[in-house]
Amino acid sequence: MLPAFSVIFLTTLIGVGQGLFLALYTGQVYSLAKLLPAQDSLSFYAIGSFVALGFLAGGLLASFFHLGHPERAWRAASQWRTSWLSREVIVLPIFMSLVALYGLVHYVGWTTPMFTISGTLPVDFTLLVGFIASVAAFALFICTAMIYAGVRFVHEWHTWLTVANYLLIGLASGFMLAAAFSAYSSVPLVGFFGIWAVVFTLIALITRVTSLIRNRTLRHKFNLKSAIGVRHSNIQQKAQGFMGESFNTREFFHHKSEGVVRTIRYLFLLLVFLVPVVLIISSYLMQSTNLPIVAFLVQYLGLMLERWYFFAEANHPQNLYYQTKS
């Protein structure tokens, strides 16, 4: 498939936004359980939520560049019964509104507990909104991933590993950004977020490499024989029906050499997984506040390559019909 930059930005940016929000909320829940020092509502949670919102809005903006008719995008909310794309179109704005509300409530400091559960757990409005937003964040991960995992014709995507990768990579990059954000605003949570970022990055490494191995050994169940309905082991296309290009030759091929694809694979494995983990560990050892920021930037760069590869790797059965340009 052709990797489209709009979709690369959309999926990576909202993944970071979702992950960052979940990181902030995890921090809040931990501090409630007195496992972490409580943070300032305004400077940490509110600003953090707005940063997450910024990433989500960036992703949303990128998605409009993918559409031929962005002014009709609202129509895409209508087929949620059958289309994962439609479900994503619904969940994304809901999640964004919840994050905005979460940030706003923290911003105005409306954090006096409304009631207390079993005498020990004070529940304020932010905790409730944050909980609903967290559910929406997970729902959004599933919707986004299922857009790809649900296309049963693309074997490379049609697996639970796609969902696992979107979820784990989103969490990893979000917690990485949370660590960077804490380091930037001198909040003593760098270690906490950093450890979780490393944990998610390493689990994501396992699922991503598993999917790479799976796709490498994948045996496609489609072939030219059933594509044109001729039982013969030696069929060659002599003409695809036109001598120039078509939508079919553009949209479904990555048009890069095998070498480029391979290089990008090694590069993304390095930049998404290895380098950020090393950077976070060294930042812990060196007590550096810059390294977590560098770690996030490197990982994000790697993520764009990872998404590029995700598309490039996918082999669509329609390609069987477009093998010979003449």
């Binding site: 498939m1 031929g68 008719h69 014709f153 939508f247 949209e251 390609n319």
Partner: peptide, 26 residues
């Protein structure tokens, strides 16, 4: 008049039967 030009349907056709109109974006 309803198509937003997201091209998702073309991914879901194993026969490559759909072609995007680059001019009218549908």
């Amino acid at each position: 008049d309803k198509c937003i030009g997201c091209k998702y349907c073309s991914w879901a056709c194993p026969y490559g039967a759909r072609e995007f109109d680059e001019k009218n974006k549908v």
